[in-house]
Design a protein around this nucleic acid. Structure first.
Lengths: 208, 208
DNA sequence: ACAAATTTAGACAGGCTTGTCCAATTCGTC
DNA sequence: GACGAATTGGACAAGCCTGTCTAAATTTGT
């Protein structure tokens, strides 16, 4: 395990103040001196950890968004599968859980660092997802007013039943992820299903 | 400010390991010795803080749920107002923010303590809210399959646009709360509005 | 095989924190 | 005013952690 990976694990488990450089070194399988040689001091190491996690999480999120069902055959099934991928590869995995916890615990202590995350992460992520939903609406599969709102609500809905597990730092089972995604997508489609009239395309055009 | 209140503030700001008893004492306006006289040691004080926050948050949540619109005149407006009350009085206020942060940061370190919170808090909260939605469905105002799912999705939707602010420990403005609640309730009602046929009552009866 | 660079173990100073002890002071109550 | 209880400030030991230093061992590149 690399030093930053070990550091991520320890920072998450113990918090910044409680994290012990000796423990990080031991967990990484190197000597304490090597940690200092590579990263200077604790704060530096912490910043490196957050940047590393942010970068990897963003890469995962964008890779997953690239698999968005633009030409769905079965809209409900395709969106459920997409939501499950999103959860499994971006939100429930190691990097996602760690990054979330570090943001929650230390976000206020490093405003500029997490402002950077906010711009590069959720900012771009939501826009990208909103664009996909807008395209789906334009193609007549959905009836959406504000694609940005719809994208955020989509994510909120498919995660609705995992909140508590996330809060306590746990990893939901595959069944829980699937059930939450299924329930969330069904509700999402009930709300945003294409209206009978062809007004869907018109509304999308007005918003475009 | 009381000792537990000051301790809650410092534990949240600095994390458990980083919290300093001298600082807590100073913030509470007492001497360090008094803190030790009252609470024994740091861990004891931490447990007292979490129990106190849990109790107050639960009280606030149940008081707010009591104001659920059982006989709505304008369903959308009434649910939006309810969602805003929920946010303002339970989720965005001092106790709510503090408790959430402590759970996220230290939940894994005190499994029994937070399991207790989980049972008394979200467990009962969601059931109570689900019961209110079930009654609304029974009265013909909504068409709901599983009231528990609907209750969780309601909360997820009305908070959808506040997630990032919550993550970073901030307090959303009144406008943000209102906008998120409005968008969330509208989507919720689009999904769960009573169907034209009187099947709503029948479905509710079957589920009851 | 050799030289340079890196890694290691361990010691070490300095600082900070927890939790205790105690004498002096203040507070509440009669 | 007087007496018991609580509070205070400060000193204090013990432990832990960070960050540095050094000399030896190991790895790497050529």
């Amino acid at each position: 395990m690399s030093v930053v990976d070990a550091a991520a694990s320890v920072f998450c488990r113990e918090g910044y103040a409680g994290a012990n450089i000796d423990l990080i070194a031991a967990e990484a399988g190197v000597s304490r001196q090597t940690v200092y040689n590579h990263h200077g001091d604790k704060e530096n190491l912490f910043v490196a950890v957050v940047r590393d996690l942010t970068e990897r999480c963003n890469a995962g999120i964008f890779a997953t968004i690239a698999s968005f069902p633009d030409q769905p055959t079965d809209l409900e099934a395709d969106l459920i599968a997409f939501a499950v991928r999103m959860n499994r590869n971006c939100i429930c995995n190691r990097d996602g859980r760690f990054l979330r916890k570090l943001i929650q615990a230390e976000g206020e202590r490093y405003p500029e660092l997490f402002a950077e995350w906010r711009e590069r992460g959720p900012g771009r992520t939501w826009s990208a997802l909103a664009a996909r939903f807008a395209r789906l609406a334009f193609a007549g599969h959905l009836s959406i007013g504000d694609p940005d709102v719809a994208a955020r609500q989509f994510l909120a809905l498919v995660n609705a039943e995992l909140q508590i597990t996330f809060m306590l730092g746990g990893t939901p089972t595959e069944e829980e992820v699937l059930r939450s995604a299924t329930n969330g997508v069904r509700t999402f489609l009930s709300a945003f299903a294409r209206k009978k009239s062809p007004a869907g395309k018109q509304a999308a055009l007005i918003h475009a």
